[in-house]
C-alpha cells in the first residue's frame, strides 16, 4: 500500500525534476560526473542514498522494480530499499531480472543480459576514480577537464610492481567513449565487460558525494590496462555448487571450521532460475518444485 503521507516515490516533484536534469546531462556527456543537490534520505549514507534518489526520479507507477545487493535479492539492503519503494510509490516489485523495468543494484550487474528499455541504477560510494591518488577535488576536476589521466595508470603500475599482476579486482577504472575515466562503482571487474555496449541505460548515483553520471545504451567502455598486462575479467575458478553454472560470478561461503567451503552464484535470481530449470551443482539438492514436477 502506498503511504498517503508521502509524495509518489518519497521525493517532491521539484527535487525529482532537478535530479532528472542531472541524469539527462549525465546521459548527454557519458562518464561525466554531474553535481546535484543530493537530499537527506531516510536511510544512512552508504546504504544507497544516491541510487535511491536516482531510482525515485526515474520511477513511474507502471514500473516494475528489482533491487539487488551484491547480486542477491534477499539481503538487508535490498529488502529495505524494495520495501521503501513499495511503501512510498506502490510500484510492482520482482526478483526476476527479465521482468524488471528498473533495477537498483549495489555492486553487481545481473547475469541475465539486460534489454533495451531497462534502467540499471548503481549505488556509488566514491564516484571519483582519481580520489585515492589525488586528494584535491579542484585538481581532479581539472584532470578530467584536460583529460590528464596518466595518474590512473600509476595506480595500475603500483599494483603490478607490488603484486606482479593488476590486483585491483573491483571498482576497476574504465574509459568511456575514449574520453572520461569513470569509476564503475565497486562492481567486480568480472562485470566490467558488461558495461560496454549494454542496451540498457546505466545510471550511477552517489548521494554523499552528490554526483550523478551515466552510460547511455550501447556506449563503448574500455577497462584500462597495460599492453603487456592486459585486462582480465576474473572470477573464482569453480562452478556454482548449487546450480552448476560455470560462467557466473561466484561468492565463496565458509560452511564449517574444518576448511569446508562452497561457491555459489552471487546473482540469486540467476541461480534460482537455473535450478528451477533442472540444473544441479556439486552440493545442490532438488528443489521441492522440481520434485513436484517429477
Amino acid at each position: 500500500m502506498t503511504d498517503q503521507a508521502y509524495n509518489f516515490a518519497y521525493l517532491d516533484e521539484q527535487t525529482k525534476r532537478m535530479i532528472r536534469r542531472a541524469i539527462l546531462k549525465g546521459i548527454a556527456v557519458p562518464g561525466y560526473q554531474v553535481p546535484f543537490a543530493s537530499r537527506e534520505m531516510p536511510m544512512p549514507y552508504g546504504w544507497g542514498t544516491g541510487g535511491v534518489q536516482v531510482t525515485a526520479a526515474c520511477l513511474t507507477p507502471d514500473d516494475t522494480l528489482k533491487v539487488i545487493d551484491q547480486g542477491a535479492d534477499d539481503t538487508t539492503n535490498a529488502v529495505s530499499i524494495r520495501k521503501f519503494f513499495q511503501r512510498t510509490a506502490g510500484v510492482a516489485v520482482t526478483e526476476a531480472t527479465v521482468d524488471a523495468s528498473i533495477i537498483q543494484t549495489r555492486h553487481r550487474i545481473p547475469e541475465a543480459a539486460l534489454t533495451e528499455g531497462q534502467i540499471l541504477v548503481y549505488q556509488v560510494p566514491i564516484p571519483e576514480p582519481l580520489r585515492f591518488l589525488e586528494p584535491r577535488e579542484t585538481e581532479t576536476r581539472k584532470m578530467h577537464e584536460l583529460e590528464e589521466y596518466g595518474l590512473m595508470h600509476v595506480k595500475l603500475y603500483e599494483d603490478i610492481a607490488r603484486h606482479g599482476t593488476i590486483a585491483t579486482s573491483y571498482a576497476y577504472p574504465v574509459k568511456v567513449e575514449g574520453r572520461y575515466v569513470m569509476d564503475p562503482s565497486p562492481i567486480p571487474k568480472f562485470d566490467n565487460p558488461k558495461l560496454s555496449d549494454n542496451p540498457a541505460i546505466q545510471l550511477f548515483g552517489a548521494g554523499r558525494e552528490q554526483r550523478i553520471y551515466a552510460l547511455p545504451p550501447h556506449t563503448h567502455v574500455v577497462s584500462l590496462d597495460f599492453d603487456d598486462h592486459p585486462f582480465v575479467a576474473s572470477k573464482a575458478d569453480h562452478d556454482c555448487d548449487l546450480c552448476g553454472a560455470p560462467e557466473s560470478y561466484l561468492d565463496e561461503v565458509i560452511t564449517d571450521d574444518q576448511g569446508g567451503r562452497m561457491f555459489v552464484c552471487s546473482d540469486t535470481d540467476f541461480c534460482q532460475s537455473r535450478r528451477a530449470a533442472g540444473h544441479v551443482g556439486r552440493l545442490g539438492q532438488q528443489t521441492p518444485t522440481m520434485e513436484a514436477a517429477q
Binding site: E148, Y149, G150, L151, H153, V154, Y157, E158, I160, A161, F226, D227, D228, H229
Partner: peptide, 17 residues
Amino acid sequence: GGNVGERLMAIGARHYG
C-alpha cells in the same frame, strides 16, 4: 618507480616493462 613513470604514462606510455 611509479613516481618516475608517472610522466611517461601521462604522455601515453602503456607498456609496463
